[in-house]
Amino acid sequence: MEEFASDTDSDYASYWRDWFISSKGNEYFCEIDEDYLTDRFNLTGLNTEVQYYQHALDLVTDVFDMEVDDDMREQIEKSARHLYGLVHARYIVTTRGLAKMMEKYKQGVFGKCPRVICESQHLLPMGQNDTANASHVKLYCAKCEDIYNPKSSRHNQIDGAYFGTSFHNILFQVYPALVPVKTQRRYEPRLYGFRVHASAALMRWQEERRDEMKERLRARGMDTGFDAEEEEADEEGDGEIGDEGEEDGLDDMFEVGGGMAQTQIVQ
C-alpha cells in the first residue's frame, strides 16, 4: 500500500473512489454511490470508529482541499480507506449495492471455489466478524457452503468487516435464482480402488445426516436443492446413496472395481 501515497499526491483530488476501486488488491470492492455516502444517516456511528472522520469523509467524497503535511495525509488516507470499507459493508446490503455485487459475482471477480467437486463455482467475499480488525476477508462458496481463504496474499489483507457476515446470505435471499444446485458427489479416498474404512465410515455417517435432512425437507414439501438426477439415482438405488453417480469424472477407473469394494449401509 506504499505506492498509493505517491499516487495520490498528484491526483488525490479527483475521483478518490475511482482510484480506490481500480487500485490493485481492491478488486473485491464495488463503488459506493455519492448520494449514499453523503447521506449522514448511512454513516451513523462511524465517526467513533474512524480517526479523522471528517477529513476522511471529505477525501472519499472528493471535497478534501486542506493543505496538510505528508504524515498527516498518510493518516487521513488510511482513515479514508477504513471509512470506505465500513460504509461498503453497509452499502452492499442495499438494493443497489446488491445489484452491483451480483454483477461482480457473475463475472467471477471474487474467484472460484478451490474445491474440485464444486467445479469452479464462483465465490463471494464475506467476513467472519462485523467488527473491524477481527479477521480478514474470506470467500464463501454457495455450492459447498463453506468458506475459504483467498489465494492471493493481497486479498488476504483486507478486513473482513468491509463485507460483513450477512451480505452473501442476503444476496442469495434476494436473488434465490442464483443459488447453485448442490451436489452429492464427493471425493472418496481410496487405496488400490478400495475405500478406506475410517473415512468411509465417516462418510456413511455424514450421508445418514444428509438423508435425514432431506427427509425433513420433504416432510415440509421443500425442494432439497440437490441435483435432480443425482436424487433420482439415489431413489432408484434405494440406499445406494448414488455412489456410482458420485464418482463421475473422478475415480473413473474404479467404477467396475467399485462393485467389489462396495460397502453399503442398510437404509
Binding site: E145, D146, Q206, E207, R210, M222
Partner: peptide
Amino acid sequence: PRIYGFRVSEVSKTGPRMKWLRSR
C-alpha cells in the same frame, strides 16, 4: 450462515444444505 447474527434456517429456500459434508 447468519444474517445480522441470526442463523439462516434450514427450512429457508436458501438455507444451509451442505452441513453434512463437514460434519463429524
